[in-house]
Write a protein that binds this DNA or RNA. Sequence first.
DNA 1: GTTCGCAAACCGACCAGACGGTACGGAGGA
DNA 2: TCCTCCGTACCGTCTGGTCGGTTTGCGAAC
Lengths: 199, 199
Amino acid sequence: MRTMNVQDQVLRAALDLFSTRGYATTSVQEIVAAAGVTKGAMYHYFASKDDLLFAIYDRLLSLQKAHLDEIVAAGAERGDGVEDVLRAVCVDVISTSIEFLPEGTVFTRSQHMLMPDRQAEVKRRRREYHEEFEALLLRGIQEGVFRDDVPTAMLIAHFFSDVHYLSQWYSPAGPLTAGQVAEQLTELFLRGIRATGKD
Amino acid sequence: MRTMNVQDQVLRAALDLFSTRGYATTSVQEIVAAAGVTKGAMYHYFASKDDLLFAIYDRLLSLQKAHLDEIVAAGAERGDGVEDVLRAVCVDVISTSIEFLPEGTVFTRSQHMLMPDRQAEVKRRRREYHEEFEALLLRGIQEGVFRDDVPTAMLIAHFFSDVHYLSQWYSPAGPLTAGQVAEQLTELFLRGIRATGKD
DNA sequence: GTTCGCAAACCGACCAGACGGTACGGAGGA
DNA sequence: TCCTCCGTACCGTCTGGTCGGTTTGCGAAC
């Protein structure tokens, strides 16, 4: 039973409280109390309340970006078809979003609470993710695998809406497993965007 | 140039500020200043800041529920097929969500800021809407028009994710019209949920 | 048509308290 | 002796909301 370090405890408590009560309505006092530390200790490691919020964003963005890069690289190495790569990407981002559901709640609710420069960084990193995703779509369209009559911007929005909405309806206590949700939402998406001969 | 009444001015300012700056980070002072009234005047008409927030929810929920009932009733009267009715419903809710985009921003961001009883009411009314939507899906499944291998809960989430995500990506200043978005997102959704002979 | 009565509308100074953040000092290892 | 780590007391600011009082609108009385 060794004592966990202050940073971890504080971040854990902050994530929990931000996701359940909201960022603005959670005071620093409540966070440090839940973490079992004092305000002095917390402000020794974090410059501001905003830092705690940004740490949550940073972690999730880094993780999902790393996954994406890895999957795309592995697909390229194996010479997988674009639909298989895209499927793997979709399943992964949905799965990890379920795994980090509280982070997702904070992500959608509290982005506008970040300091402007941090907010800009989050937007930039999301855009990078979307652009890599878009590259797959464009490749699929060029190869005639995906439909070309809907702008990619809308296809991107259509998919990521599912990802962001997860924290609003999915419960691990419910009947559906993370894997089922990932597979089925991915399949709904892919079915919608596949090219068809006529139609 | 007659003076607009206080309620309208205040609600208009509140919607604008809540959607751009967020509920928690907007003070009552800022709202009344933007509305060109005093705090005394505002508190004469509204019991609390929470009232302002709830008014936004109430308006959007009432409007979309009324639309839904109307479309379903009209479809029943004409004896329309279930897919046509569902398509009309989807197009309408997307269109009106675009028309009321700032409300949508507030809706997703600030639901947890409402007083608990108000929050419960919002949840209840959303559930009612979803249940009416689900009834269409179930009818379509029973008639063999829609696929039966995905739980309706997931189909519902899949569709409403698009609706709620609109305020995060759609801009009226962009290249896409509201009508295009409504048509195309609806078609993506319908294509995903249609029953297929094989597959 | 002027005056009166009165309720609704409105004003704005004023709380009590909570908030994020800071100052400062002690402990304890190096 | 110095530096990191952290506890405690405290500060200035801002918040949602209140309250006593004033103004305005308007029907009724004379």
